[in-house]
Design a protein around this nucleic acid. Sequence first.
DNA 1: AGAAATAGGACCGGCTGAGTACTGTTTATT
DNA 2: AATAAACAGTACTCAGCCGGTCCTATTTCT
Lengths: 154, 154
Amino acid sequence: MIRISKLADYGIVLLAQFARDPGNPVQTARDLAERTRMPAPTVSKILKVLLRGSLLNSQRGAKGGYQLSRPPDQISVADILLAIDGPVALTECISSGGGCSAERFCQVRANWVRINGAVRGALEGLKLTDMIIGPQLGPRPAASPAGATMGKAP
Amino acid sequence: MIRISKLADYGIVLLAQFARDPGNPVQTARDLAERTRMPAPTVSKILKVLLRGSLLNSQRGAKGGYQLSRPPDQISVADILLAIDGPVALTECISSGGGCSAERFCQVRANWVRINGAVRGALEGLKLTDMIIGPQLGPRPAASPAGATMGKAP
DNA sequence: AGAAATAGGACCGGCTGAGTACTGTTTATT
DNA sequence: AATAAACAGTACTCAGCCGGTCCTATTTCT
């Protein structure tokens, strides 16, 4: 199904929450859980992962909380996926860096490298600021963006 | 890790094999297994799935085998993924068509719809013929294709 | 009739994703 | 100094699904 993990999905929702109200840069895990309607332990777990990926800074103790480590326009969806799910690798032979027993005969790997790079590039171009502007906030030009092409042999 | 299933990966390799030598349009499961170095039972299983997805035609009995149901330039990577892994749905809320308990509060779903559509569109544009031209067959213009952009807010 | 294929299941084992819980450690406040 | 509020880290379980294999029809050519 070519899907990202649920945790990564949650992570994006959480980070988007930060970006949505810059007035409260520091948020506690508890508050985020309430606002996003996600279970508190799971929220806490994801926040720690995002911290390790240096997408968040944390302040311990009372009056503590988390805040974005960078401006939201400098955090991409690819960054979030990298922190939570690891590197973008559509196929196993990409993530394992080759070494598949069939590699000697495999004729499609080179193409996967290209497709993979294109998807990663697209995800890198998509910033957190792009995720918070929903259809409800101001009119949008049209439905779907212009015809995203990639990887097609020239 | 945003990855496609191994079966789908195999399926692409198998179909690419058909496209690679148009001289032998009909191939048996056994032959394909040998040429791709994949285990025969698995190959057989995938071929049946591809048949159900009407990407292949089959001929039973002695001298039987499988062949592409359409010219390779009319079979996209998205078609193969659809047949094996189901519809492209990066997040669960896409495949389930909404209904998530947090949907009422979720502010990012609309963006996922756009991203998802962009990825699917890109995969649809990538045909089987694009998968068989490797770097070894003739020189290629450059490393990565031109800057695949998608989903970015205009 | 027999051999060579596909058709269509059932079946199972192992991995990993998702969620929970528990036990520190740090810090502001009183 | 004591307390409470928050983050930090780790361990654990449970379920679902992916992957692989095998078995038994059914069809068709020789």
